[in-house]
Amino acid sequence: MLTAGVTTYVMTNTKETMFSLPSLPQLLTGQKPAPVKAKVTELVLAHTYLCGSRDEERKPVLNDSIDKMLGDYAGWEIIGYQNGKLMLLKRENDISPLCKENGYFGINEDDILTLFNGMPKEKQVIQTYYPINTSRMEAGLPKEEVEALKKGIRIRDLAEYNSVLSTFVHFQADGTVSGGH
């Protein structure tokens, strides 16, 4: 059985090309089918994490498959569509892979509780939280805990992240207790 006049999609790294299979007259005369340009939308999938980190993944999607694709991303928030880009957001109730891999709590030069990518001395800030009353902290905690914060407290998961925030929230400079976010 010979099929002709069928449209086929080909996906390359970042663009899709659409072409038609030759029709019967084209097959008989040896003519090549003319390429047809497919409309492509760039899908941007953004994840935000409790630790303040955000990452994005980008992928091309054919416009005629957007409805199916949106079904695949149920629970994601549509945050925008502009210039052929569809942006979806998912708020993760966890810390990011970056924070799990290399996150350290410390205090910056202004005595603000800060989450760093790497040791605090490297000064690669992920997120800042609140000012710490260092004299009240030094009076209220064992010296080892104070020194640990100054050097950097490694976090590997959400439980460690929450533990550090709940320990040091009591030493906020303004004296109020908050969630720290």
Rank of each mutant, 00 (worst) to 15 (best):
G5F: 11
T7I: 12
T8L: 13
Y9I: 11
Y9V: 08
M11S: 13
T12V: 13
N13T: 14
N13V: 11
K15N: 11
T17D: 08
M18C: 09
M18E: 08
L21R: 06
L21Y: 05
P22I: 04
L28T: 03
L28C: 12
T29S: 15
G30Y: 10
G30I: 04
K32V: 03
P35K: 05
V36A: 10
K39D: 10
K39H: 04
K39C: 08
E42F: 05
E42L: 14
V44N: 09
L45T: 02
L45V: 01
H47R: 12
T48A: 09
T48G: 02
S53Q: 09
R54Y: 08
R58C: 13
P60G: 08
N63S: 10
D64C: 09
S65A: 09
D67F: 15
K68S: 14
K68M: 13
K68N: 10
M69R: 04
L70I: 03
D72N: 14
G75D: 05
G75M: 04
G75E: 09
W76N: 00
E77N: 05
I78G: 05
G80D: 12
Q82H: 12
G84M: 11
G84Y: 06
G84T: 15
L86Q: 13
L86H: 12
K90R: 09
K90F: 07
N93I: 06
D94W: 10
D94C: 07
S96W: 08
S96A: 09
S96C: 15
P97H: 00
L98V: 06
K100N: 00
K100P: 04
E101K: 00
Y104D: 06
I107D: 01
I107Y: 00
D110T: 15
T114Q: 13
L115T: 08
N117V: 02
G118N: 07
M119C: 07
P120K: 06
K121S: 14
K121V: 15
K121I: 14
E122Y: 14
E122A: 15
I126V: 10
Q127E: 15
Y129T: 02
S135C: 00
E138Q: 14
A139K: 12
L141F: 01
L141D: 02
K143G: 03
A148T: 01
R156D: 11
A159V: 10
S163P: 00
S166K: 11
S166C: 00
V169H: 07
H170N: 10
H170Q: 07
A173N: 06
D174M: 07
H181Q: 09
